[in-house]
Amino acid sequence: MKKPELLVTPKSIPHIKELIEAGADAFVIGEQKFGLRLAGEFSIDEVKEATQIIHEAGKKVYVSCNALFHNDRIDALDEYLKQLQQIGPDAILFGDPAVLMSVREFGITIPLHWNPETTATNWFQVNYWGERGAKRAVLARELSLDEILEIKENSKYEIEVQVHGMTCMFQSKRKLLGNYFLYRGEVMEIENRKENKNMFLHDKERNNKYPIYEDLNGTHIFSPNDICLIDELTEFFEAGIDSLKIDGILQTEEYITTVTSLYRQAIDAYFDEGEDTYDEIKDELFEKIKAIQPPLRPLDTGFIYKETVY
């Protein structure tokens, strides 16, 4: 059996170095102009520097281009892809087929990962985008364990699953926070809040707290809980899921690093020592994450064991 890749989202260049130490195998970086909801903001020069550091360590780096593009960003996207071709990251993430068109047009040879978030929901799609050049699909986080396993079984391409962190549940192009403040005549609130990511919506009926922020791509709202599957990995391991992702959006560097090292231990225990060793330590690993969990962020297992109706 092959060890799955442990994929993380660094917040800065120094953070990348810490994460390499902590045992990460691969990194998602990029900037909000092209990629959605990244943990850190990396300019093209920083992408270059990061790629160098990551490659020297023998790890992989993926650059996110999974925004929903409007016409006004297509030229910049083309330019960006050409620059990436020079830099040579290990993959480009995309959701919008415009990226696929540009990659074909400019002879970009960097592999593609298909990552449209909410809409990657069945194995046919994985093969469809695979045949069009995506060697990996990043699955929607709203799928059950059985659905994920069935997709892996029926698809000819790599499968990536998020195992930790919060997930986006809503993206609007509108500036919903700004609009709320403007409605109340509080222009200063907007001026003062350019980079503020500490806001949340309180849903009184469910007593849930949903993180919310605005950026170039509009308004983003996040899940009330952080997924944590550190003690539920056996079936992913057995199924041969190719990449396990820790999403560190809205978390501190310290938190992401600790969580990364704990998942490293979980993967290594299973593959180096065996299933029994993993079973012995997994509860302890879970407790360690629980101990550093921010107060407003309860843990859950996402949709892995939750059924949705329609």
């Binding site: 909410t118 709203e142 549940m169 993206q171 469910r206 899940s223 009330p224 949709f303 109706v309």
Partner: peptide
């Protein structure tokens, strides 16, 4: 690109 219902009411 919205799964609010999935999270809030387990409806897809």
């Amino acid at each position: 690109r919205c799964v609010l219902s999935n999270h809030m009411t387990a409806r897809d």
